[in-house]
Every structure is written in structure tokens, then in C-alpha cells.
Design a protein around this nucleic acid. Structure first.
Lengths: 349, 349
DNA sequence: TTAGATAATTGGAACGTTCCAAAATTGTCA
DNA sequence: TGACAATTTTGGAACGTTCCAATTATCTAA
């Protein structure tokens, strides 16, 4: 039953008009008479017609496919899941649909999925590049005139727009806050040192220490995987130091949660005995115990802004690359030991 | 530069063959001579040709589009993010690409995204239905012969395959384990009571209590949003009871984490003073402190199996609906107070 | 050498839509 | 009523691919 497709021609026949008229109705063209439109629409519903976008954008090679691609490097990290949700929101409401793929930090996989998306005729791409992505990986894509917006990470030398958070200002503010609370041995924990993001955040940390006339101790910078497990590992090493730190700025929230876990495993109370600050403000940050003080980058908002930027470029035909640095703000909660009230947490219940 | 598309005809001209031959090369047909194939492939690379799938599956209306759709009801829940990653794995390696959309539990949004996916000619759909989805919402989809696999939640009366976890056996085993540890006031916390999943898990809880000759106290069943915040709320209410429970089986891991948070807020130590068991085994379950005892449903594995089931149906032309109940197992960690070693956690570092 | 088989190649037609130029219909006003 | 404009409608061509039937090139063996 219902095996063979209902086409625009079937509709035309049933409604007693030409296929061109049906096409105009489908595009909500003002050229068609109201009565005709109503009749055609009725037939469309009756026959259960479904529009064939493949055929459509075969003809209109300029006005593209209404698909935008989004590829992220780690979907299991809730930061990226939320980013994707933010993108989805604006993209949907603009009548586009999103193709989502996960690369798991593999540039090979990334190449495959981008190729596949091109074959499907995406009109734009939002990309959180896998580690090790080079400008050449994106070259043919941008050469073909498909707008690309990089998020979270930049790719050096690539002529594409980017939207990254102000990593330098973020860690800088975090360190200043901790120093203001009287800490002077502040660690920087987690993250892979071969990424630009890591260096930006680390530099913010270093600059803030200088600003506050505090010494920079290299042994207090401990890199690790940017994950919860990595956070546990990093704090373990930090606690082995002859002179222990009393506070830490973490590469991201996942690391910060791991650090809290590790502290507890040593019978230390995060927020009381040791101050912890994260980066990202993922959704769990406010409900965790202790609630996490963190640099808020608002992943969903970032996804929304990236999508808007991309749509702007798609509509503009070919806007030239712009680099947007999205500002961040410190959200003070319990984990840095400075919060004075519990209202924020309780209001969630 | 590079504005106009390179087509199969351009390739043909440049390689000195006909477009039909190029087409055969693209399909890796054995009919074409090795030398010709090599030459054509060289030209393809040289001119930077990209395959136009839209045009292709316009012609071959039977062999579909190599797109599979996946729509989930809450992508910010890491369970679904991991499910999507699992689906992506097998779908990618079968040469398909995945269209992912998030409904945020809205049936309206769900209707929109499914319609959009149909227009793009998906060859199959994996669906974790939004709350309130009815069989009629899927009717025209299955009538058109597109295979659908429901995951996590079933839709009553819908003639589609489904893959759900054995909810009843899961909570049953959890309760038995707690009873075996000597608990006899065991709560069931979290979840929306208007879902089938809730009832299945609740029934497993009840049946296990009966099995163990324990009384079923209705006040120990406290529903809430299936989220971390919901877990906090549920345990708050449980601790207000005249006769407090000493253990809880939670609707899912998110609730369980919230319960741990809530316990700590009352200076109770989860695992020591109160036993907590979750459901799902999300990735954080093993790294959390205390590591969460939970019913493992292996979200990635479930995604993989759902994708395999779907691909099987796509290839079979039209396999009839099958309902698979995926078995679950109790993973004992610290949060139920029964774990004897820390090796599992430490091995992660 | 050639008949017959096999291997390799090829030109159109077709898929379902949109666009274009042109035709048909309706409306307006002197 | 006729002439012109404005509104609606329409038939084909085109988009980039695959399929089919048919053609051409190459091989085999008597």
C-alpha cells in the first residue's frame, strides 16, 4: 500500500490544474488565485503528498538545500550536546534541518562526514574541529563557496568565520577572584597542552597571577584529558606536591567535577578545604553539590549565535570571514568557598 | 572561484569517455576496465568533483537516500547523546549519514522534524518518542513503507519495531540487591508517572518487594522530573517522612545523582548512610564519587543495536515489526554501600 | 581468418521539481 | 465595445544522475 510516490503531477491532475500551478502553491507564491490555492492544498492533503526536496534543489542550484551540517568533536561531552541543541533551535525555526555528526576527535572521521555532508548539498557548516585539523582540510569546502563557522576551536590559517569564547579573560577573572579570596597557591588543572584553547586559558591564568603580583609556579600547571577522569588524575598529582595548592582553576567543568571527586576521595571538602573553579557552565554546574563556581560560556547561547552567524552568511551569499570572541562571565557558586547564600540552588527545586 | 558545479559530464569530457562510464566508475561497478577506472578516478580528484546524491536518488527511487533519521526527546540528557553516538557508529560504517533532531519532549516539534526528514527522503528512522506521542503520529510514515525503530519508549498500537530495556527486571534486581543488604524501607524515587517506562520500573520494584516478603508502602514512591533537580526534590520529600527510607531505587541516573546531592545537603553520606541505585549507567556513573551502583543499559550499545535493527529492515525491504527487550544488569559500585574494592574506580585513572 | 562469446562502452530516456517565456483570463476605462 | 493592463495559468526545458538496450572492442578456439 502507498508504495509509489505521489508527485506534483498527480496533484495537478487531481486538482485540474497544471504542474506549474501546483509548484507555485508549494512555494506559497502570491501569483496564484486564492480559490485555486485552496483547492490544490486540499488535494495535497488528501493524497498525502510529500515534497521531494532532492528533486527541488536539483533544479534550483543557487538557492540551496535547507540543510545545515554540524560536526562536533565529542558529543558525549554535554557542552557539545547543548551547543547542538542551541544550533538546532535557530536552524529549525529558519526552516532548515540539521545534519549532526560526531567525530570523536578523529580527523579521518571528520573528513568522511564533511565529504558526506557535501554530497548531500549542505548550505553551511558549523564545525567544532577535531584536534589536529588543518586549514587544508577545509580548503576545498570554502573554495566551493559553502559558508563555514568554526566554534570553540579555531583552525589557524583557515579563511572561515569563528566563534570562540574569551578564554583569556575567563581564566584571568577566575584567578583574580581566587586571589581576592586570599589564595596564593593556585593550580591550573586539566586540558591537552597541544590545543590553542589550552594555551589561551593558561595565558589568562599566568597574566592574572602577574597582575596580582603572585609567583607563577610551573609545577602547579598540570595537564590531563579534559574529562572527569582527567580531573581526578590532575588533582591526585597536585596533592602530591610538597607545597600543595589551595585552589584550582580547571580547564573545563568536566575536569572541575573530577577534581571535586578526587578531593573527596582524599577526605577534602571542595569549597571548604579547597577552592575549585570550572569553565563552561554546563547545566549540571548549578545543581551539583557543591554548586560549581565557573566561567559561564552558555553553550546553548553559543550554538544559537553560531547558527545565526552561519545563516547570515548563507543569506548574504558570501560574507567574508569574521572572528567573534564571545564574552564570558564568572558565576560564583559554592565550590570556590565564597558563596554566601544557597538561594540559587534552592530556587531550582 | 569554483562557483559552478563539476558534473559527471565534465568528468566524462575531460577523461574522454561517456557519462555512463563515469557513472559506472562512481558505483564501483565491475564492468569497467581497470585502466579506464584509474583514468576517470584521476580526473575526478583533479577537478574536485563532488557527487550529487540528490540527483542520484531522484533517479533510483527504490534504493533510497543513504540518510537515516534519529530523533530524540532530550539531547541534553547524556543518555540520549550517547545513544546517538552509538547509532552514528554503525550507521556511518554502513555508508549512511545521520540526521539528528531534538524534540525537547514536544510532539509538535516532533511532527515537524519527522515531516522535514521525510521530505529529505530518509530511508529509515530511529525514534525516541516525545511524551504523548500517539500511534496516529507515525501512521503515515509507516504506511509509506519507511522502517521505523522506536527506542527507549514504545508507542502503544504503532506497528513499528521497538528496542527497549528490560525495565521490570532492572528495578527488580536492584530492589533484591538492596533487600539482600538488609534494607527493608526502600524508596522508589523520580520519573513522570504518566509514562510506560515509569510503570514498568515501578512494577519491578513492587514485584521484588513482594518476592522478598516486604511491605509496599505507597508513600515511598515519590515521582518527580527525571532530572538531577528532580532527584534533589524527591529525596527532600523522602527525608520528611515519619519513617525514613534507608535506601532508594531511582528512576534513572540523573535522579540518582540528584539524590546524592540532596543527601549531602542534609549531611548524609550516600553509600554510607543511605544506599542509592540508579538506572541507565551513563558514563559519569563510574567516575562519580561515590561511584554509582546502577542498572546498566549501555546507551551506546543500545544505539548500535537499534541502528543494526533498522539497517536490517531497510535491507530486507520490509521486515515486519519486532519488539526487542534488551536485557540489563546490575553494576554494583559504591553508592549502595556494598562495594568491597575501589579497583574499578582507580583503574580509570 | 572468422564466428561466437565476452568484455567494455555508450546514447538517450527517465526521475520530480523549478524556471522561463508565453498564453489565457479577468479587470478597467475611455 | 475595444484596447490595454493586470492577474493567473501553462507547457516545455533544464538540473545531475542512473538505468536500459544497444553498440563496439576484445578475446577464444576451431
Amino acid at each position: 500500500m502507498g508504495k509509489e510516490r505521489v508527485t506534483v503531477i498527480d496533484i495537478a491532475r487531481a486538482a485540474g490544474v497544471s504542474k506549474s500551478t501546483v509548484s507555485l502553491v508549494l512555494q506559497a507564491s502570491p501569483l496564484v488565485n486564492e480559490t485555486t490555492r485552496a483547492k490544490v492544498n486540499a488535494v495535497i492533503r488528501e493524497l498525502g503528498y510529500v515534497y521531494n526536496r532532492g528533486a527541488a534543489n536539483l533544479r534550483q542550484s543557487n538557492a540551496k538545500s535547507k540543510i545545515i551540517g554540524i560536526v562536533v568533536n565529542d558529543l558525549t561531552n554535554s557542552f557539545f550536546a547543548e551547543l547542538a541543541v542551541g544550533v538546532d533551535m535557530v536552524v529549525q525555526s529558519a526552516g532548515y534541518v540539521q545534519f549532526l555528526a560526531n567525530t570523536g576527535e578523529s580527523v579521518d572521521r571528520q573528513r568522511e562526514v564533511i565529504a558526506s555532508m557535501r554530497e548531500h548539498g549542505i548550505s553551511g557548516l558549523i564545525l567544532s574541529p577535531a584536534r589536529g585539523t588543518e586549514a587544508s582540510d577545509l580548503k576545498s569546502l570554502v573554495a566551493s563557496g559553502i559558508p563555514v563557522v568554526n566554534v570553540v576551536r579555531q583552525v589557524a590559517g583557515a579563511k572561515v568565520s569563528s566563534l570562540v569564547s574569551d578564554n583569556h579573560a575567563g581564566t584571568r577573572e577566575a584567578v583574580r577572584h581566587l586571589a581576592g579570596l586570599g589564595h596564593h597557591r593556585i593550580a591550573f588543572l586539566g586540558g591537552f597542552p597541544d590545543t590553542a584553547v589550552f594555551h589561551e586559558r593558561l595565558q589568562g591564568y599566568r597574566d592574572a597571577l602577574s597582575d596580582m603580583d603572585l609567583a607563577v609556579h610551573d609545577e602547579l600547571v598540570i595537564s590531563s584529558a579534559p574529562s572527569r577522569a582527567g580531573g581526578v588524575a590532575a588533582i591526585e598529582r597536585a596533592l602530591l606536591l610538597r607545597e600543595r595548592p589551595t585552589a584550582a582553576v580547571c580547564f573545563n567543568d568536566a575536569v572541575a567535577f573530577g577534581v571535586c571527586d578526587g578531593l573527596r576521595a582524599h577526605r577534602l571538602d571542595p569549597g571548604e578545604d579547597f577552592a575549585v573553579i570550572g569553565f563552561d557552565d554546563v547545566i549540571e554546574a548549578q545543581t551539583a553539590v557543591p554548586a560549581l563556581t565557573t566561567i559561564s560560556v552558555d553553550p546553548q547561547g553559543m550554538g544559537r549565535r553560531a547558527a545565526q552567524l552561519l545563516l547570515k552568511q548563507i543569506n548574504a551569499g558570501r560574507a567574508d570571514a569574521e572572528a567573534i570572541v564571545s564574552s564570558v562571565r564568572l558565576v560564583v557558586r559554592q565550590s570556590c568557598g565564597a558563596a554566601t547564600d544557597k538561594r540559587e540552588r534552592l530556587s531550582l527545586l
